[in-house]
Amino acid sequence: MAEGVKPRVKVPKKASAGETITIKTLISHQMESGQRKDDDGNVIPRSIINRFVVDFNGENVIDVQMEPAISTNPFFEFEATVPESGDFKFTWYDDDGSVYEETQTVTVG
């Protein structure tokens, strides 16, 4: 696992049924592009998060294929519909095989 990777998500804790909510996510990651060289002139191998998926109660909200052109500490903002109470599941997939997960519960009342 890449070192110091820490996800953050911003999701409202409460919503009304069918409401549109804005979600923001940020994850600490170098996103090494594979384009840079080290001090000796050797190419630093690509090491990025290549996919980001958000589901709510098992149904998909957004599925992002990420390339090296995504900035360090990848940030996403998007909108989701909340039909009922449940859990948002956020999953980031690293080139090195690591998977970072975060869950956030939303209560519909």
């Binding site: 820490k6 953050r8 940020l26 500490n73 940030f75």
Partner: peptide, 12 residues
Amino acid sequence: DFDNPAMLWVEQ
């Protein structure tokens, strides 16, 4: 604070 990447290190 959510948009500010510096807060990642503040949390650490």
